[in-house]
Write a protein that binds this DNA or RNA. Structure first.
Lengths: 157, 157
DNA sequence: TATTGTTATACTCTATAACTATA
DNA sequence: TATAGTTATAGAGTATAACAATA
């Protein structure tokens, strides 16, 4: 390594200029960074009503589907049974959700009055979040994007 | 628990039908699910060359920018300084990266020969991943999507 | 003082394995 | 046997706080 190396920028070593980042050409990378950033913002806002994004999704789903069982929620949201257990346990402990025996080891989940309020709050936060960041996108493009993104995860696994 | 309860579906309780999921109308939710699924697939493939997605991004960045410092990598990839430390330490311990004193407490990072190989492997895996999932998208739409997604995280924070 | 690097710590999310209970 | 639920555990990723070393 010689001294002039650092002064002669090459294609691979822009030492003082902005470093190159070939990852930005990858659509997957862009998707990951955008999703990560947007989720961070959403998480902050949901934290103000004492919910994590997962808890928000779960309680919204329960509010819209009374007596739904844990496993079904997990299947819909892509959360494993083992990870649903502490999630619903916490919601129940905080008085947001109630359990009713159904049959077998299963029980139906229903929101309490304060749970319904939490679900409405969560839905409002998420809708505002969606409008803020995606409101400028035309309905046609929205539909296109929704269809495109849905293809990746729906009926996959 | 009475028998007819489970047999009388109402608007809110489609017990046997497909549960409603209003979240799917949210573009943010679609983005999150798609990104999560695609990252899962990528993580599996990178695991076959003993890299996590973070490690893959970091080593690709080092290979393309010799003598880059940790903090700079963190700024570019959106990884906090405190989280970069164990990451680069692991890459160094595995003989993929070398440190060279630069000045202050900083040191430049450079890939070793096996590190360069790992970076090339990682880039190949990511490019194949991108082509597999986004190859069908036209160059025009690709650019549109890249610009759209980039707006969310670039120069944000 | 500002930057770099490090350690400690904690939380969220995810994943697997092993177990019980019930249809 | 298949499904539902639980517990334990581990690993990524991310966040903050506090500290040392150096320009």
């Amino acid at each position: 390594m010689t001294a002039n190396d650092a002064d002669t920028p090459t294609k691979n070593t822009p030492t003082s200029a902005t470093p190159s980042n070939t990852l930005e050409d990858h659509l997957g990378y862009q998707l990951r960074r955008a999703s990560s950033y947007l989720m961070g913002v959403l998480a902050q806002r949901l934290a103000q009503i004492n919910l994590t994004p997962s808890e928000g999704s779960v309680i919204i789903l329960i509010a819209g589907n009374e007596r739904i069982i844990q496993s079904e929620i997990g299947r819909i949201l892509g959360i494993k049974r083992a990870n649903m257990a502490p999630l619903t346990a916490s919601l129940e402990r905080r008085g947001l959700v109630e359990r009713q025996a159904i049959g077998g080891k299963a029980f139906g989940l229903t929101v309490t009055p304060s749970g319904r309020q939490a679900a409405e709050d969560a839905e409002r936060v998420m809708l505002e979040h969606d409008r803020e960041f995606f409101g400028a996108i035309s309905p046609q493009s929205r539909q296109l994007l929704t269809d495109l993104l849905g293809q990746y995860w729906k009926n996959a696994e």
